[in-house]
Simulated scan of single mutants.
Amino acid sequence: MKVLVVDDDAVHLLILKKIFEKSEDEVVLAHNGVEALELLERDTSFQIILTDIMMPEMDGVELLLKVKTSLRTMRIPVIGFTSGDVEFYRKKTQIPFDSLVPKPLDFWDLHELAKRKAIALMN
């Protein structure tokens, strides 16, 4: 599985990268939504996007909107995670995340959720 992980927290990026690599997934990292969109312009073969919500330059909500309104990327599942109020973000987003989970979170649980979402898309 090819995974795009977007977070401004270097520790979270490292942990998620290691977890997905253990199951032999290809992991690409971005530090904010702007970097993520630049990567998606060059490569739309990602099977899942995991994104933090609160980031500098472009947050996860704006990234979600751009991903889901582009014909090239709209089918890629997007899982959001936040230390903020999950219900607030569920109501705030014009287009819903495929999943939205609160932080702190168990990164292994996030890994399993991502696997389920990507497999569901393939079936």
Rank of each mutant, 00 (worst) to 15 (best):
Glu57Val: 13
Glu87Gly: 01
Asp7Ser: 08
Val34Met: 05
Thr44Tyr: 05
Lys17His: 08
Thr73Met: 05
Trp108Pro: 02
Asp25Leu: 07
Glu24Pro: 05
Leu4Gln: 06
Thr73His: 05
Val67Ile: 08
Arg75Val: 12
Ile119Leu: 14
Phe97Gly: 01
Thr82Asn: 09
Glu112Ser: 15
Glu38Tyr: 10
Lys22Glu: 13
His31Lys: 15
Leu16Ala: 10
Ser45Tyr: 08
Val11His: 12
Asp109Glu: 15
Ile53Thr: 09
Glu21His: 03
Ser83Val: 10
Leu113Thr: 13
Glu38Thr: 14
Lys66Tyr: 11
Leu121His: 12
Gln47Tyr: 07
Ser83Cys: 05
Gly60Trp: 01
Gln94Phe: 11
Asp98Val: 01
Asp8Glu: 07
Leu121Arg: 15
Leu37Phe: 01
Glu24Tyr: 14
Glu57Pro: 04
Lys92Ala: 15
Ala36Pro: 02
Leu110Ile: 08
Ala114Trp: 06
Glu57Phe: 13
Glu21Trp: 08
Glu21Thr: 05
Tyr89Lys: 02
Glu62Ser: 10
Ser83Ala: 15
Leu110Val: 07
Asp106Met: 02
Arg116Asp: 14
Lys22Ile: 08
Leu71Cys: 10
Ile19Gly: 00
Gly33Ser: 03
Lys2Pro: 00
Phe20Gln: 02
Ala118Tyr: 10
Asn32Leu: 03
Pro102Leu: 05
Leu110Cys: 03
Lys115Asp: 14
Asp7Cys: 01
Met58Tyr: 07
Val27Trp: 09
Lys22Arg: 13
Lys103Ile: 04
Ala30Leu: 08
Asp8His: 03
Asp25Arg: 10
Ser70Leu: 06
Lys92Ser: 13
Leu113Glu: 15
Lys22Met: 12
Gln94His: 13
Glu87Pro: 00
Leu50Gln: 04
Phe88Asn: 09
Pro56Tyr: 11
Leu13Met: 05
Lys2Gln: 11
Pro104Cys: 04
Leu105Arg: 09
Glu57His: 14
